[in-house]
Structures are given as structure tokens and as C-alpha cells.
């Protein structure tokens, strides 16, 4: 099984910590999803940092700090360095935004930041488009995990380019890969796992559901179903019908 820089996840689900109605609901969502990883960020201290840090640590999951909102390699590198010290982890979800409407990653700044951070000992989880050339550059930079988007952050339509995601999965069979962002429903998560992805990362679909804990549980069931299906050798799809009930022995009526 492909691992995440030497770490095997109990459950292939990474969950964001943002946008929940309350800390209690956040805790319930993590409990009911059995998510193995929590994403967090660093922002200007306004008095609530310590309490949130205590809450995140109490979840008992791996912590994956992000560089959300950074628009340049420099900003992302500085944020990563601060996150490593603050959160006491060398994992970093590398996000370098290139476009404000789509929140699409800037591939040039992303690769530049990944090169610097990998050289500095970080274990980089790059948020990227499903572009194979960018993926190659990120792997050359030292990334051992790739995180292509399903669709723009917070949009929720599911996998916008299944062909591209399938191709990327096939191109890097030895790398752990995560579909990150754009998932709105558990079926989208199942689809990503059925393609052979190693985990999914989501936030809004759970946090903004009417019942976040129940939706978290639904995603947990979906990723488990998708993972089982992926390892079970799905049948090839075909255009023509093929009867499943034997024709031999059918009565002459």
C-alpha cells in the first residue's frame, strides 16, 4: 500500500477544520468520519490560537498545515517555515494560488516553492491541477505525494475531469495521491477512491452540511466502499448489453 512519507493512514480521509458551526460540531465530524488527517492554517493571532491548537491536538489525528491564501513561492515558503515550528510537523499542504476566482494553483510558483521546501526537509503535499507535466516537475522536486484537485475549492461539483485524474493515477503508480477539493457528495469521494486514489481531502462538503457529523460519516462509508472496490478489480465497462442470466436452459415457450 502506498504511504504518505512513511505514514500509513487508518482511514483514507483528510478533513478540513474550517467553517463548522461550532467546535463541538467539528469534534463530532472528526469522530464520526474517523478522518486520519486534519488540515489547519496559520493566521494573525487574535487571541483564539491557543484554544484552537488545543482542540486540534485533542482530535488525535495527523496535522497537515496549509499555505492557503499564499500567492507566491516566497509567501508559501515563509508560511511553511512558520507552520513547521508552530505545529511541530514537517508535513505541509502546499497551496500557491494563481487565480482568485477559481483558486487554481499557480504551477510555476508551486514548483518553485516545492523545490525549496523539499530541499529544506519538508514533506510536501502539493495542491495542484491534474496536469501530468506539473506532476513530473513536482516529483523531480522531491514530492512523494500529489494532491490534484477534483474541482475548484469550495465548489462541490465532484470530479470535473475524470479522464485527467485517471491518467494521472496511471502515470504515477507508486506515488500516494489524494484528490483534494471540489468534492460535494460522498459519491464523488467514492469515485476518486474507485479510480485508485489513496485518499481524499475535503472540508466544505462536511462543514457546511445541515448535519456535518452525519455527512462526515457518509464520506467515511464512501471512501471505504471506494477503496474496497478499487482493490477488487472493477469490471471493464462496455457499450453493448451482455445478459447476466444464462441463456442455456431457457424454456421453449
Amino acid at each position: 500500500m502506498r504511504d504518505f512519507y512513511g505514514v500509513t493512514l487508518n482511514n483514507p480521509l483528510m478533513l478540513g477544520t474550517s467553517q463548522y458551526p461550532s467546535p463541538t460540531v467539528l469534534e463530532a465530524a472528526f469522530r464520526d468520519s474517523r478522518a486520519a488527517v486534519a488540515t489547519v492554517s496559520l493566521r494573525r493571532e487574535q487571541g483564539a490560537g491557543q484554544a484552537f491548537w488545543d482542540l486540534v491536538r485533542s482530535l488525535g489525528v495527523h496535522i497537515l498545515p496549509n499555505t492557503a491564501g499564499c500567492h507566491s513561492a516566497h509567501e508559501a515558503i515563509m508560511t511553511a517555515q512558520m507552520a513547521r515550528e508552530y505545529f511541530e510537523t514537517d508535513w505541509i499542504k502546499l497551496e500557491v494560488i494563481g487565480h482568485d476566482d477559481s483558486l487554481q494553483p499557480d504551477p510555476f510558483e508551486l514548483v518553485a516553492a516545492a523545490e525549496a521546501l523539499c530541499a529544506d526537509g519538508f514533506k510536501v503535499f502539493p495542491y495542484m491541477t491534474e496536469d501530468q507535466v506539473i506532476a513530473t516537475r513536482l516529483v523531480e522536486a522531491g514530492c512523494r505525494v500529489l494532491m490534484p484537485w477534483g474541482a475548484p475549492i469550495g465548489s462541490g461539483p465532484g470530479l470535473a475531469n475524470p479522464y485527467g485524474l485517471r491518467s494521472l493515477r496511471a502515470a504515477f503508480p507508486d506515488l500516494a495521491m489524494v484528490v483534494d477539493a471540489g468534492l460535494g457528495l460522498p459519491s464523488h469521494a467514492a469515485q476518486a477512491m474507485e479510480m485508485g486514489y489513496d485518499a481524499v481531502l475535503l472540508n466544505t462538503a462536511v462543514a457546511q452540511a445541515d448535519d456535518p457529523a452525519a455527512m462526515a460519516r457518509a464520506f467515511a462509508l464512501a471512501v471505504e466502499a471506494g477503496r474496497l472496490a478499487s482493490g477488487s478489480g472493477p469490471m471493464p465497462a462496455r457499450d453493448m448489453a451482455a445478459p447476466s442470466t444464462p441463456l442455456i436452459g431457457k424454456a421453449w415457450l
Binding site: G16, S18, Q19, S41, L42, R43, R44, M82, A181, N203
Partner: peptide
């Protein structure tokens, strides 16, 4: 615009007009 680790804070001089960022944990996706 440059990260200053905890250990370097006592030896990091300040000057008028410096820009200091003080960050802490926050929710994130």
C-alpha cells in the same frame, strides 16, 4: 517578510518601521 524562529528572537534587532507578523493556529481546509 522573513521567518524568525523562536531561538533567534532574542538576537533579532528591531528598527523603526519594521513589519512584524505574529501568527497562531487557525481553522483551515
Amino acid at each position: 517578510g522573513r521567518f524568525v524562529p523562536v531561538a533567534e528572537r532574542p538576537n533579532t534587532p528591531l528598527a523603526t518601521g519594521d513589519r512584524l507578523e505574529v501568527l497562531a493556529a487557525m481553522q483551515g481546509g
